[in-house]
Amino acid sequence: MFLIFLMNSNKMFFYFILFFSTLISISSNSWFGCWIGLEINLLSFIPLISNPLNMLASEAALKYFLTQSIASINFLFLIIFNMIIFFNFKMNNILSIMINSSLLMKLGSAPFHFWFPNIMEGISWMNNFILMTWQKITPMILLSYYYHKNFLMLILIFNVIIGALGGLNQTSLRKLMAFSSINNLGWLISSIMISENLWLFYFIMYMFMISIMCFLFNMLNMLFINQLFTCNINYSIKLFFLINFLSLGGLPPFIGFFPKWIVINFLLFNKMFIISFLFIMMSLIMLFFYIRIIYSSLMFNYMKLKWIKISFKNKFINYINFFSFLSLLSMILSTFFFF
């Protein structure tokens, strides 16, 4: 009992540091302060994902440490180099592209995304949720301070295309959510180029939708698509899957469409028609593989497993009920708000 309490207190300590390291970075008035915050964040997240009883988690922790430390070294070298050469941060094309690249590597953005699905595959759903949401805050805020516009335009196109096409042949739910996160990163980068308030709104909506999905998968202990139709799940839970996946894909009646609608509106206003077209087409591909998961859970049901009924006596299912119907109904309210 004491050992369990000790493990939980250790986790609480690292979660506390993880939270405050982000605040250190985004409230710092120097690039060195931002770098220190990034390093504290890295060193607090590694003990949370590593698990001595699970080799995949330990491998994921090592991969995460190596990629993040390479990006941090690159970031530190470039900010020192920029200060030595220019004495202050003037806009230089090559240096701004390189600084942006190191931050994009920390984000797991395409084309530096190769570590991201592999690490997602090795860690738990709770840690996946942190990696897909909280760990994106610091690099995104730092990216908004000093970015190369044309380079980021190219990167967000890479993100939406690779995120959509990469998830097509995946059977692992964690890898699928990783490619979904890469796709949404393209939308997040475009929103932060428009306005920080819009980015915050999009990010909160994305965090809200991802939290429901990760909690549901964690509660059902789902790791692969085929588990959805071998298990005889209650139809109300299948309905939550339907609502939340379609909301995450950005289908119009649901709340997930609202931030995407605003981003597309700004892109069209600035005459970025090709990027808007790409965003919409890749969202359709994302919806295709979300619908494939929903179809698996709703339509297929093995007769030999009919007697195994998964039911929940969990108080959190009521919260998921509430948030799912909020996702369904709030689009009506947001339509009036937008106009």
Rank of each mutant, 00 (worst) to 15 (best):
Q170H: 07
M132E: 05
N159L: 06
S69L: 04
I237N: 05
I97E: 06
M126P: 13
L239Q: 09
A57K: 12
F339Q: 06
I36E: 02
K306S: 15
L185N: 05
F254P: 00
L3I: 15
L329K: 14
F5G: 00
L188M: 15
E121Y: 07
T138K: 05
S327L: 15
I24M: 07
S311Q: 11
N218P: 13
R174V: 04
L131Y: 06
L287V: 05
F201K: 11
T230N: 07
C231I: 14
F240V: 00
G250P: 11
A164I: 09
W261S: 11
S296I: 08
M140C: 02
I40W: 02
I40R: 04
L43G: 06
I237Y: 08
S334R: 09
I243K: 01
S69F: 04
S191C: 07
I119C: 00
L78S: 11
T335H: 01
I194P: 10
L223I: 02
N74P: 06
L248V: 01
M177A: 04
S44E: 07
N270D: 02
I49D: 04
C34H: 06
F81N: 10
L242C: 00
L239P: 07
A57V: 07
F323I: 09
L242N: 01
G163N: 11
L220Y: 00
W115V: 03
K149M: 13
L48K: 03
L216V: 12
W35V: 10
I161V: 15
P253H: 07
F14K: 06
L156H: 06
M303I: 12
K271S: 14
G122L: 10
I73W: 02
R174Y: 01
M91T: 13
F201S: 04
I204H: 05
Q135A: 06
W31L: 08
L173I: 12
I308H: 04
M207V: 05
W35I: 12
I141E: 03
N244M: 05
C34L: 04
I320D: 08
I162H: 08
N183W: 10
I40L: 14
K260E: 00
M209W: 07
I46G: 03
N118W: 01
N82M: 12
Y202K: 01
L268M: 14
L278G: 01
S109H: 00
F279V: 13
K149I: 15
F338L: 13
M282Y: 02
I26R: 03
L142H: 05
S334Q: 08
K260Q: 01
I119E: 00
L78M: 14
L76H: 13
I308L: 10
L188K: 11
F14N: 03
F179P: 09
I119A: 03
K136Y: 02
F325D: 09
Y145V: 06
M177Q: 03
L220G: 00
F45W: 09
T230M: 07
F273R: 03
Y15I: 15
I212S: 04
T138L: 07
S330L: 13
M98K: 02
M132R: 02
S102A: 05
F114R: 01
W125E: 00
F77D: 03
Y147E: 01
S247V: 03
A178F: 03
T22Y: 05
N10K: 11
M132C: 12
L62V: 09
